[in-house]
């Protein structure tokens, strides 16, 4: 039960949300350069959302009944809340991407005319609210169980949120760097991405402290390598260092360093979701951890 589709969906959904929020922040507060360089984030968000619903559906025991998720509205169940959030966020992300495409002349004809009608500010605000819900609910969903590794600490939702925002802003940085964005914009994106990575490390430290011995299936077991080397090392510490290194540079050097750092963050975010998800299965067999969860 519950196979690779779940962490893959959490990763892509989180990245889509992070990219959308980052692009919207740049559009709301940034310069014309910032807006131009980050608008690709809307395309990325829409693209990352395409496989999400299929992944979610593929993991069901009865995929033909996926729509039963939407026969009621029950926010008490994170699974139900998430299904509704994805249903709401996906069209908004597509509408915002289409509106940008219409603005640049990529989308023409009647579809372009339709896309021009999208109220961009409203789409950005609503999309950010739904996107942040999508980025955060996945950790809360895993934590709203009786699996010790997921449930012991209160911070798994915050951890997944930080990781989603780091990977999403990294995705925006990556496309900006590849398309040769101005140095100032790249520096700002790097600052934002680094803040998310630093936040992720801080929340992770809290998560591991709160979990205590319960975290052993993750920190010592067969998932120790993907977790420490992949999620923590390559996914959070290395990009921080690389962005630091890129801080004083400009032009080509800045672009390549930013791109490498962002790739690391994106890969690390997948490693984090996957290792915590899989180690949770080992944790469910850990009787003493279960008793710890239910004691006192």
């Amino acid at each position: 039960m519950w196979t690779w589709e779940v962490p893959a969906y959490f990763w892509l959904g989180g990245m889509a949300a992070g990219a959308y929020v980052t692009a919207s922040l740049a559009h709301g507060f940034g310069s014309a350069d910032d807006r131009r360089a980050t608008a690709g984030g809307y395309y990325l968000a829409a693209a990352a959302l395409v496989p999400c619903a299929p992944l979610l559906i593929a993991d069901l025991g009865r995929p033909d009944r996926f729509h039963h998720m939407l026969r009621i509205f029950k926010p008490l169940s994170p699974m139900n809340l998430g299904a509704w959030t994805l249903t709401g966020f996906t069209p908004i992300a597509f509408a915002r991407a289409a509106s940008h495409a219409a603005g640049t002349g990529l989308l023409r004809g009647p579809l372009g005319a339709l896309a021009r009608l999208v109220p961009t500010r409203l789409a950005e605000l609503a999309g950010c609210a739904l996107g942040l819900t999508l980025a955060g609910y996945s950790g809360v969903l895993l934590a709203a169980t009786n699996i010790p590794l997921w449930a012991k600490s209160k911070l798994l939702g915050g951890l997944f949120m930080a990781s989603a925002l780091a990977s999403g802003s990294a995705a925006v940085t990556l496309q900006a760097a590849r398309r040769g964005a101005p140095d100032a914009t790249l520096h700002r994106l790097a600052a934002l991405e680094s803040a998310a990575s630093a936040g992720e490390i801080a929340v992770l430290a809290g998560y591991l402290t709160q979990s205590g011995r319960t975290a052993r299936p993750l920190t010592r077991g067969r998932f120790a390598a993907p977790f420490w080397l992949g999620a923590v090392g390559a996914g959070a510490v290395l990009p921080l260092l690389l962005h630091r290194l890129a801080g004083g540079r400009r032009g080509r050097a800045l672009q390549s360093l930013s791109a490498v750092a962002s790739l690391c963050t994106i890969a690390g975010s997948l490693a984090l979701r996957w290792s915590i998800f899989e180690a949770g299965k080992d944790s469910s067999e850990d009787q003493s951890a279960s008793f710890e969860l239910s004691s006192g």
Partner: peptide
């Protein structure tokens, strides 16, 4: 659950604030 959502929301809002600060005033 509320506590867990709370921490998650705190991280999200914190990111949005930092983002606003990073990009602010560059119009």
């Amino acid at each position: 659950m509320a506590q867990r959502y709370g921490w998650s929301a705190a991280v999200g809002v914190g990111f949005a604030l930092i983002g606003a600060l990073v990009f602010r005033g560059r119009r």
